[in-house]
Design a protein around this nucleic acid. Sequence first.
RNA 1: CGGGGCGUAGCGCAGACUGGUUAGCGCACCUGCCUUGGGAGCAGGGGGUCGGAGGUUCAAAUCCUCUCGCCCCGACCA
Length: 582
Amino acid sequence: MRYSKYFVHTLYEAPKEAETPSHILLLRGSYISSAASGIYSLLPLGHRVAEKVKRIIREEMDGIGGIEVTLPVLNPAELWKQTGRYDDIGPELFRIKDRKDRELVLAMTHEEIITDIARQFLRSYRDMPVMLYQIQTKIRDEARPRAGLLRVREFFMKDAYSFHWDFDDLDAYYPRIFNAYLRIFARCGLQAVPIEADSGIMGGSGSHEFMLESPSGEDQFVVCPKCGYRANTEKAVGLKPATGDLPGDPPAMEKTPTPRVKSIADLMAFFGLPEERFLKTIAYEADGELVLAVIRGDFEVSDTKLTNHLKAIHLDMAPEALLAKKGLHAGFLSPVGLKGVRIVMDDSVSGKALYVAGGNEPDVHLKNVLPGRDFQVAEVLDIAEVRIGDVCGACREGALEIRRGVELGHTFKLGSKYTDAKAMDVTYLDARGEQRRVIMGCYGIGVERLAASVVERWNDDGGILWPITVAPFEVLLVAIGQKPEVAERAEAIYNRLARRFELIYDDRNESPGVKLKDADLLGIPIRVVVSQRLMKTNEVEVKVRKTGEVIICSQDEVEAVLEKLRTDLQPSLEGLPYMPEA
RNA sequence: CGGGGCGUAGCGCAGACUGGUUAGCGCACCUGCCUUGGGAGCAGGGGGUCGGAGGUUCAAAUCCUCUCGCCCCGACCA
C-alpha cells in the first residue's frame, strides 16, 4: 500500500473534545471520525484495526466450536415483549415503527432473536450443546457516550449464545468461553483481569467481567492484594467489623425527642455516638411495593444487592407519598414496631449491640435498641456496599482496594431467563423422550472498545504502539533522501516486502520530520527506513516502535529480520489465569 | 435527567467585556522555487451564512431572548 494513494490525514493538534489518550490518538491518526455524539466512522486505518480484532475473535470462537451467524438489527417488538424486556429496558432501547405502524426495536443485544431461533430448531438433546455467535452492529441510546470509542451508541459486538441440556452442561462448557476470552484479549496485547460480576436480573449462577485496568475506565472493581480476589464493586463482599459488646444487663429501649435531627451526621452530634451505633432505615419502592432496608450507620445499601435479593426489576427511593400511606416519616424510620411492611436487614446489624434507631414518628428516636429483642427481621443478609479498606471476604486478611477499569467483555450463565415458560418457552426432548428446558449462556465483546482499549494501554508521547496482531499494517517503509536512487531502492524493497508483509510505504514528498512523526503517531509496529546515508553500505534501518530497538541490516537481510521480528512481537499467551476445563 | 464548560475555515485559537470599513493568526490544503534523519524556507493562492432562529440598533461574531449541537462530572447502563 502506498501512503500517498491511501487515506491518511493526520492531525497535528487533537480536536478539543478529546481528552482520553485513545480518543486523541485515534482522531489524530485519522483512524476514526465523529459523526454525532457516540457515533463514529471507522476510517480506513480504523477499519483495518477493527477487522484484525474481529479476525482474532473469530479464530478463537471457531476454535471452541462456535458457529457464526448474522442476526438482524431490526427486531419485531413482539419478541421483546415476550421476554418482558420491551417494558423493562428504559430509553436505551430504540423503539421505532415501520410504514405499516408495526413496532420494531433496534437490537441492543440479540437474546430474543437467537432464542427464537433456538425455539424453532433445537428440538433434540442431539442438537446440543451448541454455540452460535456473530460480530455485528449493536445500537443503544446511551445516556452518556464518552471517551471516543470507549462508550458509544453504535458499535460492533461479538455476541455468542450457547445452548445446553442443563446447568451441568453449561457449567462444563463455560470454562471454554472463559479461556477463549482470555486468549482473545491476550492476543490483542491486553492483560484482561476476570472479575466476579453481578448477573443482575439476568439471573443464573455465574458471570464474569473481563476488565482492563485503566484510569480512563468508567467501571470500578474491588481487588484484594493479598489473595487476588477480584469482584465488581456491586458484588464484592467485605467483612464487617462487629459493633461493640453488649453490657451484661442491657437497658430497655427508650424514646428520645430529637427535633429536626435526621441525618446520621446530625444524630452523631446529638447523641455523641459513632456512626456504627445507629441503624439507618432506607425506604425503597421495588416494582411499586414499599420495602425498607435496615443497615448499620457506617455502611451504605448496595442497590444492586438489594435489587437482586428482591428479584426486582425497578428499584427507586420511595416517594414521600408511599411512606405517608403507611404513616411513616422519612428521617425517623425504624424497623421497631412495624407491621405489614417488607423489611430487609444487612448483616452488619448485630443482635449483640445496642443502637439508636428512628422512632417511626416525627422528631423522635429510640435509644438502646437491641435487634432481636426490640424488633424482628426475617430477611437478614449482605446488602451493603463494600468499602475501601474493608477486610477481604475471601481470605479474611487483605484490605480491599478499588480500581478503575474498562469492561472489555462479559460472560453470563443465563440459565433459563429467556427459555423459561414465562419468556420464550424453549424445550427439547432428552434421551428418554422427556421434555426439558433449554439452558443458555451468553457472552459479549465490544470490538471498537477493545481496539480503543489497546490504544489506552499502548501509547507514548509520540503516538500509538500497536501490538502487531491488531496493527493496521505490520510494517511501515519510509524513504528518506531526495536522490532518485533512494526512491528506486525503496521501490524495490517495497515490491519485495509487499508480498510477505502487511506493508504501507510512505512515498510522500514530505520532509523526514513529517514522515517520522507520522510514523510514530500511526504506531505501525515495525518501521523500515531506506535513506541516502545507509545507501552507501547497502543497509536499511529497522526500528521497533514499541521498544525503540534499532537493527541496521543489509538490504538483502530485511525479509529475514522482519520475519523474525514478526514472530518475536507476537503477544504471549503464557500465564493466563485459565479456568480449568473438564 | 442534574451540574459545569464550549460552539468563529478541515484542526487549534484571537476578536466579544467597551457594537463601527473588506473577520484575523498558526497548522493543514493548492501553485511555483527550494529542501530530505525528527512536524524546513521563500513567494503566491483558495477556503467563513462567526451553530441556528428571532429581537435591539443607522450598524451585530460582539448586546438580549429562544433553540440546536458538542465535551466533561454525576445519575443510569441489557
